[in-house]
Simulated assay, not measured.
Amino acid sequence: MSPRPATVTGLEASPSLAAITLSWDSLGFDPLIDHFRIYAVRGKSAPRSPQESDLLAKSVYPRLVHAGLDPAGETWTYTVLAVSDAGERGRAGAPLTATSQPSVTATGREVAAIGAFDGRTLEHHLAPSSYAKIPEQHPDAVIEYLQGTDEPGTAWPYLLPGPGDAWAGRREYRARWTITLDGEPAAEHDLAVWLVDTTRLGGTLRISVNGEHVTDLDLPAGATRGSREGDATIPGSTLKRSFHELPLPAGALQTGVNVIEFHLAEGGWVAWDAVGIFARE
């Protein structure tokens, strides 16, 4: 008779924005492990024995990313058990509760934004599929947006092309967002950059504030569908959303005119969900 798998131990969670990454200790080769079963229940408690209705996923590796969570933050309790190649189930390990990182869009006060943080490109110019007009309308590969005067539907194209895009001339496009502040921010602020999709090329989005480099965002490989589809919230959508939020250095913003520039230095286009500046409450 095949031995029963050992109890899974070492379950740990690494929370991030809209996701929780789980990992646990590997098991030996006696018996051979066919897969792990991961159970998840909303909240801070779980049934004493895992319920099949709570099965989140199966994994052949001692790791799983629970993605697609509400950016405002979600709390889940997880248990994991192993199944041998003979179909024998081990006992579930100790449950673990984790909460995903809440977005600054939920915890902060909006100072300025372009678009709605809703998983869609549809409020932006030329969405959802007229990308070919972007190089026609911006022959210098520069997009200018003046907060308080311009509107997303007429002045902020839903895609920012990059050097990997032949249709846009393989150029490094820049989007410049101009914001006027009545006073110098007294508290720290955060910049939120949400994307509905990227291309399979991934890439680098270089961000500067008032001419000072802030960071280079490493863009994940996406589904390359966001140039034709504008809603990642539709059930079954293959669009690959990504969320990027970063603190702005002290003194980066100033009284009067501020210019935030997004420079797609490497890779293919990004499909905007929204960008915003948020004051910490």
Rank of each mutant, 00 (worst) to 15 (best):
R225H: 11
D25T: 15
L146G: 04
L122C: 00
N258E: 12
V275K: 00
G169W: 09
R109N: 08
Q147A: 14
A271W: 06
V209W: 10
G87E: 05
R63F: 13
R120P: 00
A274G: 11
P15I: 00
A112R: 02
A40C: 14
G226I: 01
S84M: 01
F278P: 11
H35D: 06
R225Q: 14
F117I: 01
R241T: 13
L69K: 03
T105F: 12
T77Y: 05
Y61R: 15
P71R: 02
V104Q: 12
D231T: 01
P5S: 04
G90W: 02
D70R: 13
R109F: 01
D140H: 09
A252C: 08
V209A: 15
A265G: 14
D231S: 01
I207E: 01
S23M: 06
T198E: 12
W194T: 08
T255C: 07
A82C: 07
R89C: 11
K44A: 11
V80K: 02
R37M: 09
H66C: 13
S129W: 12
D216R: 05
V214F: 13
W24A: 03
V80C: 02
T238V: 00
T9L: 10
P157L: 02
F36M: 04
Q254A: 15
E52Y: 00
I277G: 03
D25A: 15
L11D: 10
Q101K: 11
V257W: 08
L160E: 08
F243S: 06
E74Q: 09
I33Y: 12
T204I: 10
T107N: 01
A113Y: 11
A175I: 07
F278W: 14
E151F: 05
P128T: 12
K133T: 11
G222D: 07
P15K: 01
L217W: 13
H213N: 07
T99F: 08
D190K: 14
E245N: 10
T77M: 05
I38N: 08
V275H: 01
G267L: 00
S242W: 00
T199I: 14
I143C: 05
H125R: 11
F117P: 03
V111R: 12
T77L: 05
E261T: 04
S59E: 07
G115M: 01
D216F: 06
E281N: 10
Y61E: 15
V65T: 14
W272Q: 09
P5F: 05
A166Y: 15
T255P: 05
E136Q: 11
H35P: 08
Q137P: 02
D165L: 04
